[in-house]
Design a protein around this nucleic acid. Structure first.
Lengths: 239, 239, 239, 239
DNA sequence: CATGAATGAGACTTCATTCAT
DNA sequence: TATGAATGAAGTCTCATTCAT
């Protein structure tokens, strides 16, 4: 408050939700009615916190605060912490899936290019965003929330597997790839990306001194280079 | 309780996790080796539970029970749940690294064979054992325990990176591999395995119905096949 | 909302429960009689819910819903749940008392017949109607709402006692009954009925399997038979 | 604490549980281990509070305080508020039932005397004690806790009905009573007592000014006098 | 007058930690 | 040392009440 001290924004709300404008410092916190915007604001706040601290360590009140509402308001929109979490997963993964389908849909070009594009897009839209933190949470809490695990399997794992399997299949059918096993190859394709995303949202988000940091981008390309070469049909190998 | 009972000497480090070498299997009459074995028993119980349920969902009482002692006794050895957690991670990672070094040792044969051996061994000794649960925990809790992240970086990530980088280097130097970028390739090599291990200890451990389950073993081989081909020097490509 | 709409005059007692006579069934076009009917509608809804679930388990929102208004509107008429509760009890007790007086009237015939009639009527008009739920509420909450207990004592217990005492007195004076103690006998007369009514509105309203259910009607008659015989002067017994 | 000030006991604990003796005024409240005494102390505290305020209005922490323990300790013995309540009911009603059976068992004398004794005892051991408050609670909360209602029906209502029916039967068989209907008469016998007990624990426990207060004792005798006369075989009525 | 989104005190319950025995 | 009864801070969720619209 004093003139010389250059206070940085309160650490509690580094990504402050936006307090509407006026927000005078009087006691009653000037409650607002924003029925339509609230759900998304809550979802965003929840995603950020869940991704950072995990499911159990995130308090509902903290989510509400970050969204700029009170504890009770959160429960107006989501009936429980678990449902809130599911909504977060659903919201971000539905988008994810939709994008995957869409991107794969009508693609012209070599399958190698398609794969590069898919993985690139995934990294840009998911892996490098807070949404990637969801994977971390699911991995960490799956055994405590079996129905959540089932949900995740149904909504994410299976569709993603389908997408990549069919893409590899396309490469094989077009004579671009050797006849590699589908599921295993699909997994080998995405694993490094997901791994990098996990890293990014756990150790990578900590202030650790490390002399072998890896740029995910560079890693992605090295991986693609490696793997595509490994799949491609070599000159004298023809089927 | 009575005064005449001469309790065996207190373990030199009542709160220390245990120096891993000390728990030799000597003293065959399995009688009354309680007090020295306690720390390790607690650590084992804690590892199993943390790996299964995560940090927050694991109750200290449960750990104590599983180790066959009372709640209070646990606090005799570890001053808090957090310290117990750190001790578990440290204890098991040290072992883990030791095994890595040992496995690498002096290997004769092609670098492809060496890599195959390394990854195979890793899966056998770590990925498929409860120790892999540690990765899950560290990933999930890194941001809540920053010094743990630092520890993990120092003790696991950096050494592992060094091991794989030097192996790839060996392959390049011997003319077996193309001149691929070291760090990125190393990461691409291990990522699918770690990913599979994580999967194994989260979703894979849940009773989820899934039509695209992948055998980690088969995946490992598909991955190796792919990646080694991608790295190898092709006939007409000379260095 | 618009300025030209001439809302009907505000009810003279916006917060008053309603004086019971005011809600005549006039104004046949059942159109827009909302605002004057509101208090009674709220009271009715509240009575039903309080009687069914008790004070604490009844939510104000539920009351509002049942009355067809919003939560906020309820508070326009009653400043708090507690006041609503009191208004409900008072309102219905007034009715109850009125019915008592009405039922008593001027009776010709033996006092036994008069008593039979009184109790019969009470059961028909009160005991078997939702109004009996009020007794349940008062009994349950008297200690949490002392002034309500006072009100109940003044408005119900004392008048009822007076009515039955004077009736018994009449029986004694006319030589029909032995000189029994007044208050105690009056209580002994009504207790089984009230008891049955309470039962009816608590356990009797639950889906309990019970092999000793009692028909309140039959019980009433057995009780009367017993008690009137007990009071009546026997052939050889003095005056 | 000072010598001259005669402090009355803190208002929070009018019926203080007994603080073991020492109870110095230091900050740590001198926790004690009384594993065997605790359950009954908690039950007593719970009975008193439930009887006074009802189920919902009684806070678990209040029960713990009154029993002289902390919130958590309560849950060491009873897993939930509902279970605590059931334990209270069970504890007090089991005693009740046992006493009833026992008292009725081998009785010599007229059935009128037996009935007088039964009702007298009931009043002394239940009706006039806090245990009678249980009836109030069951009546008030039965519809919110159906399984409690079932429990109460099974454990109290049915056995009590059986006891009184068999007693009336005995009177009829011995030629003491007219052939009255069993269930109905049994109910008519106990109803005034239960009614009085309810009254005692609701309105009767409030500071109400009332000019028609009834001594339950006197009422009990008036009732018995009335009802026994009504049941007894009159001189010229032969069986 | 009416609405219903928003609030926040408070209830129940859990569990890491302490400490008398 | 070991125990496990006891503690109390903290978390999730409810709901009476308020108030901007």
């Amino acid at each position: 408050m004093s003139a010389t001290v250059t206070v940085e924004p309160a650490p509690d709300a580094p990504i402050a939700p936006l307090p509407s404008g006026g927000d005078s410092v009087l006691r009653p916190p000037a409650r607002q009615r924003r029925k339509v915007a609230r759900p998304q604001e809550l979802l965003d706040a929840a995603l950020a916190l869940f991704a950072e601290k995990g499911y159990a360590a995130t308090r509902t009140e903290e989510v509400a605060q970050r969204a700029g509402v009170s504890k009770g308001t959160l429960y107006l929109y989501y009936p429980s912490k678990e449902e809130l979490f599911k909504a977060v997963v659903r919201s971000n993964l539905t988008t994810l899936i939709a994008e995957g389908q869409e991107a794969a849909g009508s693609f012209e070009g070599t399958t190698s290019e398609l794969l590069a594009m898919l993985l690139d897009t995934w990294w840009e839209r998911v892996g490098s965003t807070p949404a990637a933190g969801i994977h971390k949470i699911v991995i960490a809490e799956a055994r405590n929330f079996p129905d959540l695990a089932q949900f995740y399997a149904d909504e994410v794992i299976v569709p993603a597997d389908r997408l990549f399997c069919s893409t590899v299949q396309r490469g094989i059918e077009r004579g671009e790839f050797r006849p590699v096993p589908l599921h295993e190859t699909a997994l080998a394709l995405v694993a490094p990306l997901i791994f990098a995303a996990l890293h990014q949202h756990s150790i990578g988000a900590c202030p650790v001194r490390m002399d072998c940091g890896v740029d995910p981008r560079a890693m992605l390309h090295a991986h693609l280079d490696l793997v595509l070469r490994g799949m491609q049909v070599r000159p004298g190998e023809g089927p």
